[in-house]
Write a protein that binds this DNA or RNA. Structure first.
Lengths: 234, 234
DNA sequence: GAAGTAAAATTGGTTAACCAGATTGGTTTG
DNA sequence: CAAACCAATCTGGTTAACCAATTTTACTTC
């Protein structure tokens, strides 16, 4: 373990403690939805940490919709109720960097759906973007170069064509971790790259033909190697 | 539009411009993966914005795995390659607060899967947690009280039982927005609350019996009202 | 001339001071 | 006595100064 990770873990630990203390404070003071939290200054003093730490935690809980900061006014408890708030904080505290298997599992789930939706909703512009990414992938592979990036861009283009903003966001979140782990575990295979070209075209054609079932099936075929990998590490 | 939103939009606009400028800088200087970005100070000076703004953007791009900050050393371009980097930044710039339909669509997708996985992987502890949330829901409904929170906690308990960390994270991300929109559009119905109790028990029993198909089917039934809503607003 | 070394400059991270706007409590005024 | 108003205070947000670790640079030494 290098220093970087250590520092980050230490910082994480501090943040987790602040989250616990904020939760306890809300419960102890019986703060209802919409009630105001003590000021950042008093919280940092009470918890014995810097105001920056408190601000970071508040931003995090704001991201998960549990708190809401109003400038020059205060930080307020979201109106999701005490029970839900405690439950969600419990889960947030348990959150950890997800394992590779969970990432792949989720990716496959998302992509089978985006392929299906793309077949229903794709525009001409979407088709052009997908075509461009496949051709770029083709060029790289034929030149014997690494083409992980271009592969990724094709899948992002499909997600874009699905017209579902939430799924695009989720794809963006998991993509970098997928890439990192692919390189780490050497999931990709050189000779798979050539077969992948045709598979990309097959997915493209199904989406172009507005055939959702076929698009999903072709995406499934494209993931077959990944499936195998997923079940082997089980 | 209130002042809050306005300020937030202005800030968003500044951040988007900084992202664009950083992308252009990487392309112009032909920065390869692993290369060092100019320091935060010089970037803020060059772009004519505060160092805080730059730091926020860097943190955001770090979240999406495109950059990586090393303390006392510099900020580095992630090793995902220039092509992928440009593509992902393009998508990040297009990101917007997702519409309600996209949220519900994604939620249904996720939950059908978590129900199925939960039936395969649930522990005894998971069952106890789910049981507790259903009973809490029951009590509230029988007393005529609002039980949106308890409903949510049951679904989170199912997600926890799925054993997939990524899906739990995603559920946590979309949940608060779902709740807000439910209340906004009055999706929930009082007399639906009673039928939901039995539906929760049905899902629970299928998961307890380790029957993935039935668990998924029961979850689908539970979402039937939501399905209808989803297609009505189309 | 190359290798080692120490000091100076540069870096992201942290802390503290400052700001503008919102809130609050007391005072004034009708 | 109530309502209106104003100033003191408190708020999250922003800016600037500071810190410790790292990297670079220049000099010494063999």
């Amino acid at each position: 373990m290098n220093l970087d990770t250590l520092t980050k873990n230490e910082n994480d630990e501090i943040q987790r403690e602040i989250i616990v203390q904020i939760r306890d404070l809300i419960n102890y003071k019986n703060l209802e939805p919409g009630d105001k939290l003590p000021s950042e200054r008093s919280l940092s003093e009470r918890f014995g940490v810097s105001r920056n730490n408190v601000r970071e935690v508040i931003r995090k809980l704001e991201f998960y919709g549990l708190l809401m900061s109003k400038p020059q006014s205060g930080t307020f408890v979201a109106d999701i109720g005490q029970v839900a708030l405690n439950g969600m904080i419990e889960d947030i505290l348990k959150l950890d960097t997800p394992d590779f298997k969970s990432l792949v599992e989720t990716r496959i789930l998302l992509e089978l759906k985006t392929a299906r939706l793309a077949a229903l909703r794709r525009t001409e512009q979407n088709l052009k973007e997908m075509e461009a990414t496949i051709k770029a992938y083709e060029n790289k592979v034929h030149n014997g170069e690494d083409a992980v990036q271009e592969d990724l861009l094709f899948h992002l283009a499909v997600a874009r064509a699905s017209g579902n903003g939430t799924m695009i966001t989720f794809m963006l979140i998991i993509t970098p971790e997928i890439i990192t782990n692919f390189e780490k575990y050497h999931v990709c295979d050189k000779n798979q790259a050539f077969t992948a070209i045709q598979e990309h075209w097959d997915i493209y054609e199904a989406i172009k033909a507005k055939n959702p079932q076929l698009a999903k099936a072709n995406m499934k075929t494209h993931f077959s190697a990944l499936y195998q990998y997923l079940y082997n590490i089980e």
